[in-house]
């Protein structure tokens, strides 16, 4: 209760009690000013689509929330369920429940599929057991002893999501999970994202395929040149042709 109160207080009077609340984030890669004062909220258990053109700053936004060493957050606050993520580094944020599934998947090479999962369970705060992961991803079970780099693109994406689910996740950040995957695999990942939602986990999803992302999402944020250009219902973006043409080119 006090955590929620703290969150609300930090977010300012009159704000809704968002699960993830980003307040006036300014983030830099060295001298390059990339995230230029973004604020948005994500309600608990929802899926938010984070959309925008190439280079708009979507990946940078996710990395800022996950508290990567770079970009540096020079100003602003990020609250997750009452916890001040802006005061944490990446490993603390991960223990607070943030899981980033990066755009290039970042499967660790040179170790097996199973070892990639084991590594996810070293730090305190674990989620699905390895056996549970295999129940959800039978294909990974078949390949558990293989070097993880021998997996196909789709399998690597599944492993990346599975690795996140092997931790206790409160906020799942998906960066272009469909990129380069065949439609069949995309459907499989979509089902997983829906399942994650049914578990009550909050998701922020960046996707080039805006239509696909919006179909799944409850809310949407459109980023343009490091600023929030739109924030609202996902359905509204689907219905608003002008908005889509201006910022998403679809």
């Amino acid at each position: 209760m006090s955590a929620t109160a703290e969150n609300a207080a930090a977010a300012g009077a009159g704000q809704n009690q968002a699960f993830l609340s980003c307040r006036d984030m300014h983030a830099y890669y060295g001298e390059s000013y990339i995230v230029q004062g973004m604020s948005f909220d994500v309600p608990e258990g929802g899926i938010m689509a984070l959309l925008g053109r190439n280079g708009a700053g979507k990946t940078t936004t996710l990395r800022t929330i996950a508290r990567a060493h770079e970009p540096t957050l020079k100003q602003g606050e990020i609250w997750l369920a009452g916890q001040p993520l802006h005061k944490m580094n990446a490993n603390k944020a991960a223990r607070a429940g943030v899981q980033l599934v990066p755009e290039d998947r970042r499967i660790i090479p040179g170790i097996t599929v199973e070892e990639n999962l084991i590594v996810a369970q070293v730090a305190p705060g674990t989620g699905w057991s390895i056996e549970e992961v295999y129940e959800h991803f039978p294909r990974l079970a078949e390949r558990r002893r293989q070097d993880a780099v021998t997996l196909s693109g789709g399998e690597q994406q599944m492993l990346a999501v599975a690795r996140a689910m092997a931790r206790e996740v409160k906020l799942l950040l998906l960066d272009e999970p469909y990129e380069g995957l065949a439609p069949q695999i995309v459907q499989e990942i979509e089902r997983i994202v829906e399942h994650v939602k049914s578990l009550g986990i909050t998701t922020v999803m960046v996707e080039q395929n805006a239509i696909a992302a919006l179909r799944l999402a409850d809310t949407a944020v459109i980023v343009d040149m490091g600023e929030v250009a739109y924030q609202g219902d996902a359905q509204e973006v689907l219905d608003n042709k002008e908005l889509r043409e201006e910022y998403l080119a679809v």
């Binding site: 490993n91 990066p102 970042r106 660790i108 170790i111």
Partner: peptide, 24 residues
Amino acid sequence: TRFGLVVRAGMRDSEMLRFLGINI
């Protein structure tokens, strides 16, 4: 050892290990 696994993984991608909560 598990320590060794984490170190070997960290040699390949230390940032990813931080994203997994490990104080690498």
